[in-house]
Computed example of a mutant assay.
Amino acid sequence: MTREEAATALDSNATEVRLQGARFFSRISETDDLQRIKAALRRETVPWIRRALLSAVARAEQAPPQQVAQLPSADDLGGLDAQQIFAKAAEEVADSLIHELAPVVGLLRVVLPKELDGAYESSQSRRYLDQLHGLMTAIRDLKRANAVPTYKQFTLAELIAEVIEAVPNPGGATIQPAGISRLIVSADKDQLRLAISNGLRNALEAVQLHSIAKPPKVVVTWGATQSENYVVIKDTGPGFNGDPAAALKLGATSKNGHVGFGLALAQQAMLSMQGDIALKNDEDGAHFEIRWFRDNENLIR
């Protein structure tokens, strides 16, 4: 899609066409695009298109004027756009960090137990090393969350079953899945997995610490409206401290030994697909909800 085609798309009566235009500008908007983007934003009522346009405004407001600094065209860069270049750079930086850190962490895991003579398991060194390992994992996940999404069709129930099986549940909390078994969705599967995994992991950690239900329970539901897909995770834990939205910030955590990346990574993964996350406290625990645009899907019950 060219810039002219994207500008025309913003005026379309078709939701899917406007979304394509909004996504184009969310990736490579410039200062000169601001007027048309803001005009489209004033008219737009569809939430996921508004989110893409807001991303476009933020990007354009940070961009230098065209006459001062002109980005290379996609043709000059072998078909890559600015977002793809950014994603590639982020991937290379993350890979370099992991490449340098992983051997050091691996060696420390071997050497420290020997040097501490059996005291390693209860030592501060182990706790700090576990935190470093968690940070490395978060760097990998941050790279994935910010990547340009690749949309594919798949069965949402199967992905959720895979997530439930893979997420640690040391407290043995009951996980109750409830949704349309054959709902086919269009999404970036890795980014959606990242978002659901972190939401479920947060819920399981919450009920392990405290639960109003015995045994502790987490309910995972999913489905689709006429325009959006959704996944909701509800737990019977103590809920979020203070403003739930604050939990979406990088580094926000109330748990000792956590880097505080989990829900922020989930949020970034959904924003990459022009989706969103909503957090709130209910009477019986916390409510974690993700939504994204429903595009070219088949609903089979």
Rank of each mutant, 00 (worst) to 15 (best):
H99N: 15
L97G: 11
P113S: 04
E115S: 01
V104R: 11
G106K: 10
I98E: 10
P113N: 12
H99W: 08
P113I: 00
Q131G: 03
L135T: 12
A119D: 12
M136Q: 07
L116E: 02
R126C: 11
R126V: 02
H133R: 15
A102M: 13
S125F: 00
V104C: 04
A102Y: 12
I139Y: 05
P113R: 00
Y128D: 14
L129M: 04
L132E: 03
A138D: 09
S123L: 01
L108E: 03
L116G: 04
L116W: 04
Q124I: 07
L132Q: 08
E100M: 04
I98A: 12
L107F: 02
H133I: 14
I139L: 14
H99D: 10
L129N: 07
R140H: 10
Q131E: 02
E121M: 00
D117N: 14
H133W: 12
L132C: 11
R127K: 15
A102R: 15
G134T: 03
G118N: 04
V105C: 04
V111E: 09
P103V: 03
Y128R: 11
L112T: 12
L135A: 14
S123C: 12
L116Y: 03
L135I: 15
V111D: 11
L112A: 06
H133S: 13
D117P: 00
K114H: 12
R140W: 01
G118S: 05
R127G: 04
R127I: 01
L101K: 10
R109K: 14
T137P: 06
E100R: 10
T137S: 09
Q124T: 09
Q124A: 14
G118C: 06
E100D: 15
P113F: 02
K114I: 11
H133D: 14
G106T: 11
A102T: 15
R127V: 00
R109S: 08
E115H: 06
L129F: 09
L129P: 01
Q124S: 15
L97H: 11
R127Y: 01
L108M: 13
A138Q: 06
I98G: 07
L112Q: 04
L97R: 14
